[in-house]
Design a protein around this nucleic acid. Structure first.
Lengths: 111, 111
DNA sequence: GCTATACTCAAGCATACGCTTAAGGATCCT
DNA sequence: AGGATCCTTAAGCGTATGCTTGAGTATAGC
């Protein structure tokens, strides 16, 4: 777990093929071929996407014999989720603060 | 609100400069210059980032006189957040199902 | 050992990104 | 009107992305 950045995580999720792979993997582990088959591209191309996901820490894989099996890493999904959730919460908090300020100003006006 | 895709949303969030802009905007509206000033790049470059955020639906802006003021659009943050949260939930559910299956198999063995 | 399978690597190519500087409006202030 | 400010557009350039085909390596099964 070294240097997994939000940059890579979000960039990885920005591609529909890669999201499709993640989606498939949420249903359980799969091999490289299984992941590539439904995608509208060659197997090497699919492997590049897999590599991107793996370097982003979203997916892990292990090779047994000649078969590489892949899994999602939910920890990285969490990290991305939290960044967004935290920013949205921050926005809401500051919106509330603005509302409070406006109400206070209004009350002040009415004195 | 037309054609805002997850592709664009995640791609927009993949850049640190753009996340910095979003982060700043969660504290309240800001002008183009205010958003660009802290960034290590020229103003036109910052505006391109702003354009990306706007086309992703993450930011809205309006020009009054010669000043353009920007805001976050929390709805698009929600959308991205949900995609990730849903996938993570899906993963957890299927993991539970696998656990149940293994337990059932184990019980079967012991009969 | 031989063949099929599953993956991996390499070369090549077109397109898209990210940034720069320079120039061009549009608006506000005096 | 003239100058300062804020934003916008344009041209140019180097690098990165995404895909292809073709060849190569390792393992499984007969």
């Amino acid at each position: 777990m070294l240097e997994y950045s939000l940059d890579k995580t979000f960039a990885a999720l920005a591609d529909p093929a890669r999201r499709a792979i993640v989606e498939r993997l949420t249903q359980g582990p799969a091999t490289v071929s299984e992941l590539a088959r439904p995608l509208p591209m060659s197997l090497p191309a699919a492997m590049l996407h897999l590599k991107v996901l793996e370097e982003a820490g979203l997916v892990t894989s292990a090779k047994v014999g000649r078969v590489r099996t892949c899994q999602v890493n939910p920890a990285m999904l969490s990290q991305a989720e939290h960044w967004v959730a935290d920013r949205r919460a921050m926005w809401a908090r500051n919106l509330d603060r603005l509302g409070a300020f406006l109400n206070a100003a209004k009350a002040e006006d009415e004195t």
